[in-house]
Design a protein around this nucleic acid. Sequence first.
DNA 1: TTGTACGCGTTATCAC
DNA 2: GTGATAACGCGTACAA
Lengths: 336, 336
Amino acid sequence: MKEKKTLSIIDIARLSGVSTATVSHVINKSGRFSKETEEKVRNVIERYGYVSNNTARSLRSSSSHTVGLILPNINNDFFSSIAVSVEQFFDSSDYALFICNTDNDPQKERRYFHRLDSMRVDGIIVISCQKMLESDLVSRNIPIILLDRTPMNSMDLCVVTSDPKRGIYEATSSLIRKGCRNIIFISSFLATYVKSDRVDGYLEAMHEHGLPAERGKTVLQLPQGPSIVHAETRLIDFISEGNPVDGIICTSDNQAIGAMAGLRRLGLKVPQDVKVFGFDNQFQSRICTPTLSTIERSPSSLGKISSQTLLDLIHNKPTEKKITISCSLIERESTK
Amino acid sequence: MKEKKTLSIIDIARLSGVSTATVSHVINKSGRFSKETEEKVRNVIERYGYVSNNTARSLRSSSSHTVGLILPNINNDFFSSIAVSVEQFFDSSDYALFICNTDNDPQKERRYFHRLDSMRVDGIIVISCQKMLESDLVSRNIPIILLDRTPMNSMDLCVVTSDPKRGIYEATSSLIRKGCRNIIFISSFLATYVKSDRVDGYLEAMHEHGLPAERGKTVLQLPQGPSIVHAETRLIDFISEGNPVDGIICTSDNQAIGAMAGLRRLGLKVPQDVKVFGFDNQFQSRICTPTLSTIERSPSSLGKISSQTLLDLIHNKPTEKKITISCSLIERESTK
DNA sequence: TTGTACGCGTTATCAC
DNA sequence: GTGATAACGCGTACAA
């Protein structure tokens, strides 16, 4: 086995006939060297393929040029879109990124905080699955940003969220404007970590127009499991019991697709008889038949803005404490 | 601003009245300490919330307990499934993971190799988008695993791949067994980095049964762009020209969904008139109508096995040089 | 403009 | 079983 001896800054200094200090200055562009020495040093670095040792650099400068992103599950359109935009942002800022999957396991989340702390990351963005944050997430004084989900105690940390309640309100209002009167709300099984005020957006819009809407009556709560299936059967039952429906607001695109399947089986036409809104603008909303109107939370904006904010905090720049990004309605065939 | 002074191992040593060496031994469970000292030290660590400094540890031990995963795009079912399984594997092995998105940009890939090198990762798994690898990917002698895609020169590196050609062969054979005779193959725009022998699986199966199949005739090559759209229009054109079709093999689920839309517009029934196979078992294959038969490459197996192999290499254990994971057919309504 | 020398927090090697 | 101390590679204050 050929042993590649790793070169250090000392070797480069010797090979180019200067001191380590000069090499360091050249690498970090911190000035104090002549054009010629720079050329000379860069040549040597290039020729020998020298790569500086980031662990030593971090130790010395107590900054690793590294950040962490903790999220529930990267195998999910919404979160992975966030991850991509965070990744792109920090790549172009020359930071490396740790992406950490918690699988919605609070204990795993805590383990990751600890590990990132040990890695001396310069900051952390977290989509938390904890109901309540511990006061000592990390041992050092680094910036942490709460993204999308807000635990009960936000501990004075910076918070970046979308406004789904408002989005639901807008979608409901839009259906009302189009003449729907019997609009129902389909809601997923609620995990405990989601502080869901989404249904309130629906209720508010309905009540403002004097339309009937009530938890336990026009709000269908699905059991845990595949929402695409549950939405279909639950809706069929509901309509078969004689309840009138001419509009449906869902909390996921899959629910909406399931609901549309149910309507089809009942012989009801979308959007002529019933108009349907999904949620999250997932891929499938563009390819189902009819194409699905939906509510977009702009994951890439969420990612980009929280990244920018984190970087500002790392650089000790002042930032907003609470940033809310509004949702936008995407209207397609299902509400035409 | 309250300055959290970060404690070092020296502080812990002083606070518990032992030497730094002993503290280190306790932390790393490297033996040579009594039950009581252990207790004492652990108490202090707990009380003061001490977190060891991984950058210093890496510098000293020249092992960062960190690995890198380089892939084209995490916002993609197949790749993100791989990422999740790699993540889970290394989390349980107590390694931290850098996930790097290249966006299929070879230059970005090279930049990430460099950065991971500088981070002193202990190993790298890469789904490469390079046609040809450079000989000096990294400056150190660390294990690298080529996953899924194989550049022309694999440079004696360990390779883990699925066998899509074989999978296509099996799918084609399956349609033939079900009585299809005029089977066509729809192929995506070919990025240069994909050494695609998939079509060969189709051609072999057809020729073995004496059925007509030929590049340029029964193989439809789609232009770059949304394959769901192109597949639909291209197929409609093809059939309208009078070509008989009773089976379709696609190289992605989206193509298949587009193709089924085209068939529907032509009044052809799936699976009665035409049977359709997709590829990759993406989410949408389970929810389209009819549900889509497809070929599964087992991303989680690919991730797990390449992770295990990388870890073995890091520990200098012997491993296979080339590992192939076979595809499996998932039969749903579209080939009933 | 350049070089010398020290310290960052940890682990490994010795001694005891 | 425990302690002292020399590395690891780099950045930087200071001297030259």
